[in-house]
C-alpha cells in the first residue's frame, strides 16, 4: 500500500454507545457498541460485518454523529467528532455522508428529486440557483439517471433507481467519506451488481473513502480492502479482506465464513461448515468475559471472566481471542 493510503482518515478509539432500556428486573443498558477501535485509511473501503444486533449499524450512525457516543473518540482528519456540538459538527456533516439500506424509507416522498439532491447543497451553501440545478443534473447523470428525472417524485422510481438517487444526494455535497449502511440489501440480485460497480467507480473518480456496512459476506469481501467483524458490540477481528477470508483467526469469524452458501454446487459448504450452536446472545447488561464464549467450541475458563483485547497477531491482522494462536482446525 502507498504511504498516502496509510494515513488514517478516521480513527475510532474505545467507541461506546449504550442505550437505556427496562428489563423485568429493573433498568438495564443495551451495550450496542462496547469499546471498539479501528482505523479507516484514506481512499480505502472498510467493510463492517456481523449479524443482526452486533452493533454495526449503531457504529456507522455514531460515527456520522446521528447518535452521541457514550464514550470514546472519533478522530476524523485529526478532529474528535465525539465531543463537538451540533454547530461545530456542521462542516463535518458535509465531509461525511451516509447512504441508507431502505431506498423506500430514506427519500422524502413529498420532495422532488431536485429538492432531495439539492437539499445538502443549500444547507452547506455549496451552490444556488441555476448553478445548483445544473449540479443536480450532473449528479443524476453521474449515477445513471436522466435530467428529466429531476422533476419527478420518489414513488416513480424502482428500488435500484432510488438507491441511485440516495447516492446522488450524498455525492452532491462533495464528501470525503461515505458511510454505506447495507446499501444493496434491499435490491434485486441483478441490480446489486449495478450499484456495487457504480460505488467502485465513484470511489476511484472522487477519491472517496467508504465504510461499507453489510451482512452479505461475499459482497463485502468483493468491495472491501479491509474488514472488521463485530459480535455483540465488540470487534472480534480486523484484517485485509483476502487475509480475513483465507486465514480467519477468531472462532466466530471461522464459523461465520464457513456458513456462507457459495453459488457453486461442487463446493457445498455443508461439508466443511462449522455449525454454530444456539442464537446470538443479548446485548442487554453484558457480563464480563468474551461475548462469544457461550457459542464457542474452544471455550475455556478464562473466557468466562476476562474480556479478550483486540491484539495484532500478524502484521495488520487483529483478533480478540485469548487462544487464537493455539486453536487448530
Amino acid at each position: 500500500m502507498s504511504d498516502e493510503k496509510r494515513t488514517p482518515l478516521l480513527s475510532v478509539r474505545n467507541l461506546t454507545k449504550y442505550f437505556h432500556t427496562s428489563t423485568p428486573t429493573g433498568p438495564g443498558i443495551i451495550a450496542a457498541v462496547d469499546g471498539i477501535d479501528f482505523d479507516i485509511y484514506k481512499g480505502e473501503t472498510f467493510g463492517l460485518v456481523g449479524e443482526s444486533g452486533c452493533g454495526k449499524t449503531t457504529t456507522g450512525r455514531t460515527i456520522a454523529r446521528l447518535y452521541t457516543p457514550t464514550d470514546g473518540s472519533i478522530l476524523f482528519d485529526g478532529v474528535d467528532l465525539a465531543t463537538l456540538s451540533q454547530r461545530e459538527l456542521r462542516p463535518f456533516r458535509k465531509r461525511i455522508q451516509m447512504i441508507f439500506q431502505d431506498p423506500y424509507a430514506s427519500l422524502n416522498t413529498r420532495m422532488t428529486i431536485t429538492d432531495i439532491v439539492a437539499e445538502g447543497m443549500k444547507v452547506h451553501n455549496i451552490a444556488s440557483g441555476d448553478e445548483m440545478q445544473e449540479r443536480v443534473y450532473q449528479m443524476l447523470e453521474r449515477v445513471g439517471l436522466k435530467r428529466e428525472h429531476a422533476s419527478r417524485y420518489p414513488h416513480e422510481f424502482s428500488g435500484g433507481q432510488r438507491q441511485r438517487i440516495g447516492i446522488a444526494r450524498s455525492l452532491a455535497v462533495d464528501p470525503e467519506m461515505i458511510i454505506c449502511d447495507e446499501p444493496i440489501s434491499a435490491l434485486d440480485v441483478s441490480i446489486q451488481a449495478q450499484v456495487v460497480n457504480m460505488l467502485e467507480d465513484l470511489q476511484k473518480e472522487y477519491g472517496l473513502t467508504y465504510l461499507f456496512i453489510a451482512h452479505d459476506l461475499s459482497m463485502v469481501r468483493h468491495i472491501s480492502d479491509r474488514i472488521g467483524v463485530m459480535y455483540l458490540g465488540k470487534m472480534a477481528e480486523i484484517a485485509g479482506s483476502d487475509e480475513l477470508y483465507m486465514n480467519p483467526l477468531h472462532p466466530y469469524t471461522k464459523s461465520l465464513l464457513s456458513s456462507i452458501p457459495i453459488a457453486n454446487p461442487h463446493k457445498k459448504v455443508s461439508d466443511t461448515r462449522i455449525m454454530l450452536k444456539g442464537d446470538i446472545g443479548s446485548p442487554i447488561n453484558p457480563k464480563p468475559g468474551c461475548r462469544f464464549a457461550p457459542r464457542c467450541r474452544y471455550v475455556q475458563e478464562r473466557c468466562g471472566f476476562e474480556t479478550p483485547l483486540l491484539r495484532e497477531i500478524r502484521p495488520d491482522h487483529f483478533c480478540a481471542c485469548h487462544f487464537c494462536e493455539t486453536i487448530k482446525d
Binding site: 441483478s190 451488481a193 459476506l217 461475499s218 468483493h222 457459495i262 457453486n264
Partner: peptide, 9 residues
Amino acid sequence: LLKSIPRDV
C-alpha cells in the same frame, strides 16, 4: 445472474 454475484469466496 451468475455473473452478477461474487461466485467464490
